[in-house]
Amino acid sequence: MVTLPRPKKIAFGLHVPKSFAKLADTKPSMQRLYIGATALVTQTALDAGNPMVDKETRKNSATRTFAKMIVTTGSGVCARSIGEWIGENGIKKGLFKVPECFKDIVKNTYSSTEAQKNELESLGMKIEEIQRKNSSQILESLTKKKYPRAIGAIAGVAMAVVSVFVADMLFIDPITNWMLDKCPRLNKNKNKANENKQQCENKCKGWKA
């Protein structure tokens, strides 16, 4: 019996765009934005379709979640961005210095010069500029690019922690209520509730009389 050779398995994979590599260096502010933007859709939808409560409660909780998500995401992204800006500019303006040992850390993480070049390219440096530099200059500029980013990320997280106490605890509820008052679409339910309350009070007055 003739046995046919088994066909070689061909490996298929989904090709991702070139910009996908940039996700390796995601900043905390961007991460907060991704989480907040999706929360705006998913949490509002989940609250609007919650079968455990009645229709009116669903509407109210969904509008409140929507308003709250806008406020919390806005304050979170702003706080982190400010922290990142302070961290990155602090090094550029000489407030903090890049420690000498950090060069070794970068060298260990990106062992080959090609990896360092690739990282510099993904950080936004032009290819011609990279090609003009020798290996030690490449390591130097990568360290100078990476350290401010790391300090910026840490400062961003610190600012986020501070913003929880300053913004979230003090301003979230008033801002959410203000948004619900100002926005006529969100306010529709509240107006109706107030109208009903007024009607009920008038009726009670009539009964008592």
Binding site: F102, I105, T109, K146, Y147, R149, A150, A153, I154
Partner: peptide, 9 residues
């Protein structure tokens, strides 16, 4: 200065 930035990288 060092440990947290290292972890980030």
């Amino acid at each position: 200065k060092i440990t947290a930035p290292r972890f980030h990288i």
